[in-house]
Design a protein around this nucleic acid. Structure first.
Lengths: 362, 362
DNA sequence: CGAAATTGTGACACCGGTACCAGCATTGAT
DNA sequence: ATCAATGCTGGTACCGGTGTCACAATTTCG
């Protein structure tokens, strides 16, 4: 083997190989100051020959800039966040930035640790899908800003915090979906993926609070559901909202319970991918047909939804756009622009397929 | 506001605040050498008070270690890679390592650039799902090793390269799936997600080469398909293998073509998620029933497959385990253990559901 | 021909840690 | 009383870049 070394060459070694001073080599490679064409040529040749690559750590040390963005999401294996991260990553790459991705498993302590890691690594900015629910639990976000690291929230806003956030209009999207169900004639509409509490809140306010306490988006979607019901003059029924652990299997059980009520729902609104598949499992186990027996609308479109029998009417979230927009806003903040604040709302897309029919005659 | 600063405090500032030397503060915070209890107390208090956090860049500069792993995948938005990255990320975190994730969009040039970025950032190791197909195009991998950065391949092996790789047994998994179809009585079995060439190779060898040239896993899966056919004494029919762009829509078109042959396939083996949904779209458009008319087995199980009508028989890949195993092997290599070489093969799981029935009577 | 302007060079301080080392007290042993 | 061992401290070199600056060499121009 020709180059059998395990330590990368340094600037000094380039200079030595070229027979010039470290400074001259630095100026050539750094593209500043005066360098004679002859020296420049020698340095470039030497750098090429010994395979020199600048140490990004050392550069960051002296420039104070890492050209790196930190990204914190709940779970990178979740396709939704996968899309968001991809959007951030592509947008960053276009600006010559790299991304460090950290998963928090939706745990606030892990999120705080993640923010600290990113501060320590001196990232130039952070995109955060936060599990924090109010300004009271957002101390770590404040700390990042105090350390001079701009933060942009994505997917979730933190009420009461004056922070740039890139989100979708969850409330309006949920409302639209439920309105479609109402238009089709449904009056009993189940809400799948309610708050993860053990005991079912009977009061409406309580339910909303619990949902919002768990996840901002969930609170918004529940609100949208209630908005549509209110407009139609339909009374809220606590039995038509699932509660309990947010896992597919539990969603199934809750939907089965719901469909076994004396007055079961004739339509379901599912606010998450696993809520949809959980609900479909329930329909299957009760031998009910999608659409004909129970209409359904879900959040988070996927290519699978289109090949179901019947194809599912879904709400598509612009995951890539969410990510790239967040990156753009963050870059604006890094560049010191004032515009990089407030709420940026992206549009969802209502994809009408065939899982919504009129409720069955009784 | 109390702490209205935008530059993080340094070790020197801690020392100054505690009224001791930089060295004493360093010894306290670094946990080495002698420090009197009194000084120790003062330093700790001062560090706490001014919110000191060690600069990871500076530390890495002098220790030569970053506690960071680089991860390079084709597309982080792909649920398969999402799982792998999650596995790597969780395993790394358990060892106090962070991960930098780069997407290459399955482009070798981007992959080379990504490797260079990681070398520059002095990551301690790289997990790579490479688009390189032979040792001839793996110069960048060699370069990483020459720079002292250990590399572990995941999901894909590079033939002819002596490198640690963590993969599944694609060939055996494909073979098993096709055997199941044969056992059910099928003799005409379509292979969905063949090589992305414009013109259909007629010769078997040519087809395999094309598939392998595009992606190692695809070549292996095609081999497994042919293995099973060979064992059953069934002649290979080039018309039963899709060719062309690897997108869902094209898979649909190719499957439609296939099903319109004089002797159409009675079963389909799909080697990828989008191949499955593409095939299902084709069945839908031709009004054919899954199982009853055309049996189907696919790669990459998802919760959707279980709620299809009928539920789909699938091959599940251990994405998380693939990632965590890759991380483990990489850590072994970082620790200088010799064991960290060769091929590590993980098991797939064959999930039998209900999309495989006997071929229809003609 | 000499002063000023231009062109090019190497020395060096700095970023913020790590870790080695010389040296000073204090204590105990001989 | 002398010396060694022990406890603790501050000074300092180093990691590998960036970028300023003093200064030397060459060219330009009055």
């Amino acid at each position: 083997m020709a180059s059998e070394r395990s330590v990368p060459p340094t600037l000094s070694e380039v200079a030595e190989a070229a027979g010039v001073s470290r400074s001259a080599a630095a100026r050539t490679l750094g593209g500043y100051g005066y360098v004679s064409p002859e020296v420049r040529e020698r340095v470039l040749e030497a750098a090429e020959r010994i395979g020199y690559r600048a140490n990004a750590l050392a550069r960051s040390m002296s420039t104070g800039v890492t050209q790196t963005l930190g990204v914190i999401v709940a779970d990178i294996a979740n396709p939704f966040f996968g899309g968001v991260v991809r959007g951030i990553s592509d947008a960053s790459r276009a600006r010559g930035f790299d991304t460090i991705v950290l998963s928090t498993h939706e745990d606030l302590d892990e999120e705080i640790a993640a923010v600290n890691v990113l501060i320590d690594k001196r990232v130039d900015g952070i995109v955060l899908a936060s599990a924090a629910l109010s300004s009271a639990s957002a101390g770590h976000i404040e700390q990042a800003r105090a350390h001079g690291v701009p933060v942009v929230l994505v997917d979730r806003a933190v009420p009461g915090l004056d922070l740039a956030s890139v989100v979708i209009d969850n409330r309006a999207a949920a409302r639209e979906a439920v309105e479609r169900l109402l238009e089709a004639g449904h009056r009993r509409i189940g809400f799948v993926w309610g708050p993860p509490v053990a005991e079912r809140p009977r009061r409406r306010r309580e339910l909303i609070d619990e949902a919002a306490r768990n996840l901002w988006t969930d609170g918004e979607r529940l609100q949208g559901y209630l908005d549509a019901l209110d407009d139609a003059g339909i009374a809220f029924d606590a039995d038509l909202v699932t509660v309990g652990p947010k896992v597919e299997q539990h969603a199934q059980e809750e939907v089965e319970r719901m469909l076994s009520l004396d007055e079961p729902p004739t339509a379901l609104f599912c606010t998450e991918n696993d809520a949809v598949t959980g609900a479909l499992r329930a329909l299957r186990s009760l031998r009910l047909r999608i659409g004909a027996d129970v209409s359904l609308i879900g959040f988070d479109d996927s290519s699978w939804a289109a090949v179901m029998e019947p194809p599912l009417t879904m709400i598509e979230q612009p995951t890539l756009a969410l990510g790239s927009k967040a990156a753009d806003v963050l870059f604006a903040a890094i560049d010191g622009e004032q515009s990089a604040t407030g709420l940026h709302t992206l549009q969802t897309r209502f994809i009408e397929r065939a899982s919504v029919l009129a409720p069955p005659e009784r």
